[in-house]
Amino acid sequence: MKLDIGGNETIPTSVDALWVALNDPAVLTRCIPGCKSMTEIAPDNYKVDMQLRVAAVGGSFEGEIQLSDKQAPKSCSIRVSGAGTLGHGNGTARFDIEPDGEGATRLVYKGTGEIGGLVAGVGQRILASVSKHLIGRFFVALRKEFESPISRAAG
């Protein structure tokens, strides 16, 4: 089944810092929900291992992420493909990064994906909301990356 995603998020950091973070496998491993590991296998090519649950089904997912059309620090395309016990999927998305007022950056994303296997068969009714939820968790984690230790303690 086809899946469309899109939206924008404001991150409390500079354009350059966000660009660096989004190109750092260590940061992405911490932010991508269920991501166990992310290994660079070639420049801008990563292997990822994930453990996810969607509705009543849970399982592991092995995939590859490729970055392309990089225009640092403004935009980049991302291609994700993979398969696992949950099903298989592939998708592409485009990210645009732009300043958003004082000390903040706006990340605009838009993409499409195709999903098959168990996730499509069992979870399709809630797939759109689950994908929103997972994207939401990604940005919550990403924001945390830029919160200062002081504000974290205060929070």
């Binding site: 089944m1 086809k2 195709e114 999903i115 098959g116 499509a120 068969g121 069992v122 009714r125």
Partner: peptide
């Protein structure tokens, strides 16, 4: 079945 050949009604929820 959706147009990508996936069966969408595999459980009794659907």
């Amino acid at each position: 079945y959706d147009s990508e050949g996936q069966m969408l009604t595999q459980s009794f929820m659907d």
